[in-house]
């Protein structure tokens, strides 16, 4: 359905390491303009790592990541600075700046990237707060907000510059089902109102199925499947079904490797 649309995120053969350990093992993915792509996977699947690389917070071992047509693994710092104006990120814990009010948090990207006067910036920040149903909360400190409000404030900051790309890390983590559902509605509303391309990383199935246009299932650093909600639901891949049905992994244990780990001796010396 989306294949003829332009790919605004294009990842090719992304390999990353954390120290010696390989985290992503050659991930390739396209995200099309205006779609909501949910990246799903269990703990340790590499989904949070994948997001950090999409955000340009680390340099990958190999592979390329194109955002809006620019390869961020090759981009110089000035180019990255320009590109960041078109990206918004809402982190898992909100990551609001605790020393600033909620309003100042939302204003920060505008102050950094625009030359607008104070009054305009303040109005724009209040507009964004209204959009996430936090009108009138701009003078509060982040510590005075509830968990759901923090996430919404972080979202308001993420969309302050009307970015073309919005990244959302674990929108429902730590929230009750009602607040989490509200946040899902909000993400859908934002996509429709502001026409953003949204990448959501989550392990919450309900939320993923509700908002996703397409879902990418990551497992142990590999992509298991990219498809629509229906395709994922009907997938006969065993690991996907494990994830959907909350089944514990049935991993086959290699007795030699197990012994080697227990006795802390290399396999070949055993």
């Amino acid at each position: 359905m989306n294949s003829e649309r332009e790919a605004v995120i294009r990842v090719r053969d992304l390999v990353t390491h954390y120290g010696e350990r390989q985290i992503l093992k050659g991930v390739s993915l396209d995200v099309h303009a205006g779609e909501i792509m949910v990246i799903m996977g269990g703990s340790g699947s590499g989904k949070s790592t994948f997001l950090r690389f999409l955000l340009g917070l680390h340099q990958p071992t190999s592979g390329s990541i194109e955002l809006l047509g620019q390869d961020i693994t090759q981009l110089d710092s000035q180019g990255m600075y320009e590109l960041r104006k078109k990206m918004g990120v809402s982190f898992q814990g909100g990551a609001l700046f605790n020393s600033m009010t909620v309003g100042e948090n939302v204003q920060l990207p505008l102050r950094e990237h625009t030359e607008l006067d104070d009054a305009t910036i303040e109005i724009m920040s209040r507009l964004k707060l209204e959009l996430v149903n936090l009108g009138g909360f701009d003078r509060l400190m982040p510590a005075q907000l509830s968990g759901g409000m923090v996430k919404r404030a972080a979202l308001a900051r993420a969309i302050a510059m009307d970015p073309r790309l919005l990244f959302f890390d674990e929108p429902s983590a730590g929230l009750d089902p009602v607040v989490s559902a509200e946040l899902d509605e909000l993400i859908l509303k934002l996509r429709d109102a502001l026409n953003m391309t949204i990448v959501v990383v989550t392990h919450e199935l309900d939320s993923a199925f509700k908002i996703a246009d397409r879902i990418t299932v990551l497992d142990q650093g590999d992509i298991l499947l990219v498809g629509t909600v229906e395709e994922v639901r009907n997938s006969d891949n065993r690991r996907v079904q494990d994830l959907l049905n909350r089944r514990p992994r049935e991993e086959v244990i290699d007795p030699d490797a197990y012994m080697a780990r227990l006795t802390d001796t290399p396999l070949n010396e055993l």
């Binding site: 950090r52 955000l55 340009g56 917070l57 990255m80 600075y81 960041r84 104006k85 990206m87 990120v89 982190f91 990551a95 609001l96 700046f97 920060l108 990207p109 950094e112 990237h113 900051r157």
Partner: peptide, 8 residues
């Protein structure tokens, strides 16, 4: 991280 993704 939030500072960096804002471009600061």
């Amino acid at each position: 991280d939030a500072l960096r993704v804002i471009g600061i």
